[in-house]
Design a protein around this nucleic acid. Sequence first.
DNA 1: CTGTTAGCGCCTTCAG
DNA 2: CTGAAGGCGCTAACAG
Lengths: 344, 344
Amino acid sequence: MTVTIKDVAKKAGVSPSTVSRVLSGHPRISLETSRKVKVIMEEMGYTPNMMAKSLVSKTTNSICIILPKPAEELFSNLFFMELIRGIVTQSSRSGYDVLISSGANEKEELEAVSRLLKGRRVDGVILLYSRKDDAVIDFLESGGYPFVLVGRSDRYEDILSVDNDNIMAAYDATNHLISMGHERIGFVSGPPNLIVSRDRLEGYRKAMQNKGLEMKAEWIVEGEFLQDSGYRAMSFFMNLPNRPTALVAVDDMVSFGVLRGLNELKYKVPEDLAIVSFNNIPLSELSSPPISSIDIGIYHLGYTASQVLIQSIQKPDNHDGYTNRFVIPHRLIVRESSMYTPGK
Amino acid sequence: MTVTIKDVAKKAGVSPSTVSRVLSGHPRISLETSRKVKVIMEEMGYTPNMMAKSLVSKTTNSICIILPKPAEELFSNLFFMELIRGIVTQSSRSGYDVLISSGANEKEELEAVSRLLKGRRVDGVILLYSRKDDAVIDFLESGGYPFVLVGRSDRYEDILSVDNDNIMAAYDATNHLISMGHERIGFVSGPPNLIVSRDRLEGYRKAMQNKGLEMKAEWIVEGEFLQDSGYRAMSFFMNLPNRPTALVAVDDMVSFGVLRGLNELKYKVPEDLAIVSFNNIPLSELSSPPISSIDIGIYHLGYTASQVLIQSIQKPDNHDGYTNRFVIPHRLIVRESSMYTPGK
DNA sequence: CTGTTAGCGCCTTCAG
DNA sequence: CTGAAGGCGCTAACAG
């Protein structure tokens, strides 16, 4: 059934090694033999057995990504799918296959990663999250396995990672509102244990401080990356005696929640409350009004992560120096939701 | 570095075959030896080399899914991610790994599938789409490879496939509107070359015919699975002299477009136009008003596809009979967007 | 330039 | 119940 090198060799009247050499583009081989063998391979429909190849080369030409379990939210789905698309596209361009794995909990994840790596089924791993104190990272670090983190680790400084400059991004978002004339600006953050939430909050703080604007504690609300958080934050803000005229939200989903609430209460955007948020999901362009958003280049994030990982697999030497942290540029997309100067 | 069976055997003072037998749970082996070997394996951190295993067993314990390239739309992202989650979860429960692949075009897809299957890197394939006249399906069929289709093929009748009963689903959706008292009901379809669009349109037709309701040609509009289609369909419908009082849309995204347009024109939902659509994405519950939607069990679709495929890999015998087409149940979630009886 | 040989790590006979 | 031997398909020496 399956055609092997041996079969091809027999039919071509040469030795298996010769066929193998043709396959690997070995230099010292006669043009004629090479051509002949190639034709026969084509004829017989030869496809190399990856397993056998991997066994001897000790390399699999595949990487794996670990899907965090609580990827049940809409936001996560959009985000991860986009990331995966970037990863898969770049990987297949580099001739690598992508294996997806997941575990019900951290222990299972660790088992999966360990099995895949120690069992030599994949050459490296892309971690799609930045949890604190992650056992998987410890395992990968101590085992010396190639891996890259999408996001950043606050524990390991020199880990290979691909991230946005979220501080700067939030700084830009906030500054945009300030430059539109806003002075009372609120911030709806994400879960405080996520580094991305903390970074964005810090960027907001920096921008406010930089312009000497007041930052009331009640203008900062923590929530999830979900509509609901926006909804709740909105009703909280709008009931404040001296309420903000603008808002930075940690995710577009949150903005939708805010929008929905504002809509119900007959408030107008951006007149009553201007909004800027993050991630620039397709829907943000299409909502009414369209939402200003920071595009963080999710696809690009994935694409680069894959590129960086595969590079580090192929030449594991230069794993030091200052090139370990890759920053994907962001850009602010200004839309209707922030196009208003208060008091005008 | 890597621990092999041989290493374990040496340390345990037994032969490699014995270790191998312990590993595979071979019956004829003394309890004592077995225990001793297990302890040593644990100690040394032995992990079987998958490649070597695969090479001899001619089975890889992994399957692959082909990501269609034009998965650039929001809808697709949500849909596919949910599908993938179902697939990955079930696969890892069955001890299978999932490989994701994609190609820039059909030719590349075919090459990828061929390479993976003929190169014995995966045991089977899940196809995430139902295109017409697909070369990949031809290849899989003629090669006798295990595969399952999410959706259905109109060319091959007895292919392993997992799908909804989309005709019935659309029938139910339409009937719901009829039972609310609507008589002029429009339909916004998807691309006509997708089987799912055609099935849903047929279900709508059946329901209308069944009740003897008039079906004007202008009440049926074809579009994409996108907001934009909804937006355009809406403005078309609302300008009709005797416009529909209700609408079935082929996807929730389309409903959002309709909603947005209606909103801009100050029409009210469901009073001016009632809406039901498909897929029940998380956002449909949270929009204002919440949209009635047919939940098609996307996760379940993926979960079942994986299950069915792995079954067919493990016992390829009973590949005939009437059990080849699996139908995932749908259910109508009634929300505000359809809770209105016209003329009331 | 080409053929022969020896494994990669594992499983499966075949003998004890 | 256990050990030895052979081979899965391929690559990498080593000899010509």
